[in-house]
Every structure is written in structure tokens, then in C-alpha cells.
Amino acid sequence: MLLIPCPWCGARDESEFTCGGEAHIRRPADPDALDDAHWADYLFMRANPKGSHRERWCHSHGCGRWFNVERDTVTHGIVSVYRMGEPPPGGDGS
């Protein structure tokens, strides 16, 4: 059971949260400009790193806010937490 520091509420049990998968995937501004393969890339292809991973979480049974978490997928250690729209503390997330 992870202990997740919600940037709005503080540390809470994982069972209050929902994980939304990889962070920093932008919806293409003009979907029609993409061919099917690139559209599929946006839809389905995911970074699935072993180690540091930036992902979105929602404090769904708390404040209801989405935010970003940088977490190690091997140790489950949380490296940083930052709000939507903020740049990742460790570098650019584009």
C-alpha cells in the first residue's frame, strides 16, 4: 500500500487514489494531421520503463485532483510529486 503525497491534501493511502498511467501525453492538436500509425502511437503506445516513471494519479476518493508523480517502478519509491501543468522537477517532460 503506497503512501502518496497528494500536493493538495498531503500523504494519503494508495487506496484513495487512481493511477492514470503515463504522464505528459498530449492529445494531438490536429488529429487529422496524423496518419493511423501516429494516431495509434498516441492512443496505445506507452513508455513502460523499469525504473523512474512519470505518471498521473488522481486523488479520486479525496480532493478529486489530478497530479503528476515520478515513481520508481522497481522500488516503488516516490521521487517527486508535482501539479498538473508544472514541469517535472528533474527535467522536461515533453
Binding site: 487512481t18 492514470g20 498530449r26 492529445r27 498521473r56 488522481c58 479520486s60 478529486g64 485532483r65 489530478w66 498538473m84 501543468g85
Partner: peptide, 13 residues
Amino acid sequence: FAWLEEWLQTEWP
């Protein structure tokens, strides 16, 4: 409800 919130907060703030 969660679906709408997710789009609003993460994609269309």
C-alpha cells in the same frame, strides 16, 4: 464524471 474531470484537469485546464 471521472472521465470529464480527467479531460478538464489534465488536457484542457
